[in-house]
Write a protein that binds this DNA or RNA. Structure first.
Lengths: 220, 220
DNA sequence: GGATTATTTTGCGAAGTGGTACAAAAAAGA
DNA sequence: TCTTTTTTGTACCACTTCGCAAAATAATCC
């Protein structure tokens, strides 16, 4: 009996078996948070009640509170999870060294996918739709929303710098400024998706944005 | 005594003196609606309570209901008022026949003015911030939000068509598509204003958008 | 088995929600 | 002065909201 409880018990199977002491959880924190994210993403902060969260997660309110904290805490965690998922979906595309126009096309395609997703209707972008609403008077939420916008801007800026180095983009362009316009396309896609603009129209906007940024396409 | 009550009494002074029969109103409907608009614009639909509206307008709830209807009715009227005001502020600029780049600069300047306005903090754009949130599940509100986006798109499209006719814009450009990108800049300004991005930064984005749309500036 | 620990369940309470009924108030008309 | 008409102010309703305390439950540890 060397190990006590300070380090992982290292059970036989998956890392998801620490076998703690008391009554076992009836929920999986990660999937519960995913459901909470779905609700906040769809309805926003103010329009979401703890009862709705409770129903969506299958946890009753005290369990919710114990696991994640109060409503605002759940919101913050849900939003961070949203950010993390978005980061994962975008990472490969930003990292690939394909032609700039193609990278842009793929990035916008992923964005559109996310924004029109939703069981009961297109949800748009969590950052643009709900995070910015709460951002004005809540400094913490504002910092989160700002970092969400910044992250996208900076990713685009890196992309454009690399494209300039490869000669795919005019050397006179300001990468940081152009990045914010590339993000602007993301934002308009989010807004328009939310009012049920058809996917086809969104794709046309995305293509036009990519064209405008890269310069007119040479061939077709 | 020819005229009864079907037509205007045409009192001596302003048209605001029909002198109706019962107890006179303690509020002016128009300024009350302006206050309601301020609240909804700032807080959105869900986070606004009738008590808040009551306090802001100086009307108590029954009077609010009598004058404008239920909460959603007030919201709709407030949003329509917002639209009307925006239309007024933009109309002259869109109608002027100045150089395209200058028109764009002015349009974006007005937008920034509106979006950073607000006694307690920047409010962003009513359409982008709150109308789109409610738009997913409420067909009426969706139609309103869509028409709000469309109106801006179409105004830009007319602008670009005229610019093409004057030779200020490449004939190969698609005015309708380019218009949606011009609107995208509006949307990103709204989003960023809401998270308290400084005015100076917003102006830089607006200038970059105008440059990108018009083509690089010839001189400076 | 009994003690310990962690979680769920039940239920409550205080505040807030949108909406309304009803009487008092304030004007014009007779 | 008395009636009629319109609006206001008070009070209330049924319901929802968030958060929490206390008890019940289910596991491990000894």
């Amino acid at each position: 009996m060397v190990q006590k409880r300070s380090d992982r018990p290292a059970k036989s199977e998956a890392p998801t078996a620490p076998r703690k002491r008391g009554r076992p959880r009836a929920y999986e924190p990660d999937v519960a948070l995913a459901r909470a994210m779905d609700v906040f993403w769809r309805d926003g902060f103010a329009a979401t009640s703890l009862d709705t969260l409770s129903a969506a997660t299958g946890m009753n309110r005290p369990s919710l509170y114990g696991a994640f904290g109060d409503k605002r805490d759940i919101y913050v965690k849900a939003y961070e999870r949203y950010r993390e998922r978005g980061r994962q979906r975008m990472a490969d595309i930003f990292a690939s060294d394909r032609p700039l126009r193609e990278q842009l096309r793929q990035i916008y395609a992923v964005a559109i996918d996310m924004y029109v997703s939703g069981e009961d209707g297109p949800r748009g972008c969590f950052t643009v739709m709900t995070a910015t609403s709460e951002a004005v008077f809540d400094p913490v939420l504002r910092e989160l929303a700002v970092s969400g916008l910044d992250e996208m801007d900076r990713a685009f800026a890196r992309l454009f710098k690399a494209a300039q180095a490869k000669g795919e983009l005019a050397a006179t362009a300001d990468p940081a400024l152009l990045a914010q316009l590339a993000s602007a396309a993301i934002h308009t896609l989010a807004v328009r998706a939310r009012v049920r603009v058809p996917r086809k129209d969104l794709e046309a906007i995305a293509a036009a944005a990519a064209d405008l940024i890269c310069g007119r396409p040479k061939d077709r």
